[in-house]
Design a protein around this nucleic acid. Structure first.
Lengths: 128, 128
DNA sequence: CCGCATCCATTTTGATACTG
DNA sequence: CAGTATCAAAATGGATGCGG
């Protein structure tokens, strides 16, 4: 058994993080700098307050992000990647590179599939 | 702007594949060999027929997997990774390695967070 | 054996309004 | 500004029964 053979089921790998729709986006936005809640919201573009709140809470809980509250008026909260968060960022980058490299290929495959009605190749007609 | 700055939003990266719960598991099971539907089902352990069907259809549609139907009785269908599928497999491996390396760290972070009630650090009390 | 169709439960996400 | 609360909508996953 290879080193990877353990933990192939979803619970195993995803125990660490089963990424929500916005998780990798948020992590990526925090690449260069600490950001405040509404800066994140603006830059993400299209995320709801609630989803952003929930996503950030999860990232904080899992140790990918630190939350620093300033008890000022008006309030202010800064979000920043931890070292672990920066490792997650590398995964996100890998994913994104893959996506941008292969977008055309995947779109072409989809078109072919949809045009052909998804009919599979039939290779054999012998009975067993 | 870096090469990565384009396409940070979910639609961009996930257009290629927004992985369902079982997607990476299935891809990983197809690492070494072509498998039949029920072999996949058995080896995945805990996936429903429907979810497996849907997952495989998506993988086929996006060009990650080929489906070969044998018109025998009883019928037989083989699933196999394409070259593109093998690239996706590498991403899955990266994810899994990350997960197994950091499971302990994440679990510890969670425990700390849950114990402390999730209260954030307060850094400043000055008004603006 | 393979897998579609249907129905249902759970989870995730979003819209909106309101608070310290 | 940075949330919480509530409600509604959508996506996802699973159980079951049928059909080629």
């Amino acid at each position: 058994m290879s080193a990877l053979s353990a933990g192939i089921r979803p619970e195993d790998e995803m125990l660490v993080v089963r990424p929500g729709k916005w998780t990798l986006t948020i992590v990526t936005l925090l690449r260069a700098e600490t950001l405040r809640f509404n800066e994140l919201k603006r830059q993400a573009g299209g995320i709801s307050q609630k989803t952003l709140t929930v996503t950030l809470r999860e990232l904080e809980r899992d140790g990918f992000v630190t939350r620093t509250m300033f008890a000022t008026i008006p309030p202010r909260v800064d979000y920043e990647l931890t070292d672990l968060g920066r490792e997650l960022l590398e995964l996100a980058d890998g994913w994104r590179v893959f996506a941008s490299r292969n977008r055309t290929r995947v779109e072409a495959a989809r078109e072919r599939f949809d045009m052909s009605g998804g009919e599979p190749a039939i290779r054999l007609i012998h009975a067993d």
